[in-house]
């Protein structure tokens, strides 16, 4: 379903900012309020806004269904691999990076990708039922 020109223009303008904000929240999760899950949800909202305003068919050409599935599953696998990598340093999920926050930063980024892709994925699947563009 295509919405009016006002809505389409506004969502087109806000979406890039939403992605930037999502990246900020993911990358600063270990220092300030926020984190992977919150960042991921905002990331998904950027895509979902475009889908609701521009219609499923048009957005699907740019953001492919399989990409969402692929990002989601590979992020999940990376999350487990991050834990297994910790075994080389003593324990499962041990904090082996010497930086500030350690593995929380990569953890947050992966969780963000996982959650963002999963929400988009769920939205795509639900829209399949109402494919009345």
């Amino acid at each position: 379903m295509k919405m009016s020109v006002v809505v389409r223009t506004t969502t087109k303008m806000t979406s890039p900012f939403l992605v930037t904000y999502a990246a900020y929240i993911m990358l600063h999760g270990h220092l300030s309020p926020g984190g992977g899950f919150q960042g991921g949800v905002i990331l998904a909202v950027a895509v979902i806004l475009l889908i609701t305003s521009h219609g499923y068919r048009k957005v699907r050409k740019k953001f492919k269904f399989n990409w969402a599935s692929l990002i989601e599953s590979s992020a999940g696998a990376m999350l487990v691999l991050l834990g297994i990598a910790g075994i080389a340093f003593g324990a499962f999920y041990s904090n082996f990076l010497p930086t500030e926050g350690g593995i929380i930063l990569p953890f947050n980024i992966i969780v963000g990708l996982e959650v963002g892709a999963a929400f988009t994925f769920v939205f795509y699947i639900l829209l399949r039922w109402v494919e009345s563009d």
Binding site: S73, G76, A77, V80, I87
Partner: peptide, 23 residues
């Protein structure tokens, strides 16, 4: 190393989904 009992099935569950998406 006991947590690996959970990690392996979880990892391969995701791997199956990746393989399935890549046909």
């Amino acid at each position: 190393m006991i947590p690996l009992m959970v990690a392996f099935p979880l990892l391969f569950a995701f791997v199956i989904v990746i393989l399935d998406t890549l046909r």
